[in-house]
């Protein structure tokens, strides 16, 4: 059985206690996107400032409230995409979801091991890998992916 230490790694608790990039950005020029987890009421707000000239995430701020997993994941996400190009950010989203939802995509027939490997290839997840333990607690996967789904939604909205 998976132990609590698999879920609550020290680095996760650190991001939960001291979240990075917390705050707001003026909209516009920044874009604001809200994400909700209807199961537990967790809320993530992502402010994205994308430089249209370079297609780069110039700045990102996060707000909202929720459990340690959702808030730590949000904090880590903000650090991981800041300064990255939109394409790089999208690759990170795919890689992170692959890390989280191997079982989901297999069930839905969307992908297999090869796709997963492709999603993860060449992407440095760094600290984010600490969240891998979440996979052993299926109920909590949604907590970990909330920030990333919100980021994806934000990037999609900006692209429109």
């Amino acid at each position: 059985m998976a132990g609590l230490e698999d879920l609550y790694r020290e680095i996760i608790l650190d991001h939960y206690r001291s979240p990075r990039n917390r705050g707001e950005l003026p909209t516009p020029p920044a874009h604001k996107t809200e994400g909700f987890n209807p199961l537990c009421g967790d809320e993530v707000v992502v402010y994205l400032d994308v430089d249209p000239a370079t297609d780069t995430v110039r700045d990102i701020k996060i707000a909202g409230q929720g459990c340690s997993i959702s808030q730590a994941s949000t904090s880590m996400m903000s650090g991981a995409v800041k300064g990255k190009t939109v394409d790089e950010a999208r690759r990170l989203i795919r890689a992170f979801k692959a890390l989280m939802s191997i079982h989901e995509s297999k069930l839905e027939g969307e992908g297999d091991g090869a796709d997963l490997a492709a999603d993860l290839e060449g992407v440095r997840l760094g600290d984010l890998e600490a969240l891998q333990g979440v996979v052993k607690f299926p109920v909590r996967i949604k907590c970990a992916t909330l920030a990333w789904n919100t980021l994806q939604q934000g990037l999609d909205e900006i692209a429109e």
Binding site: L4, L7, I69
Partner: peptide, 8 residues
């Protein structure tokens, strides 16, 4: 958070 309490 309540979710974390419930998990423990």
């Amino acid at each position: 958070h309540a979710h974390d309490i419930s998990q423990v």
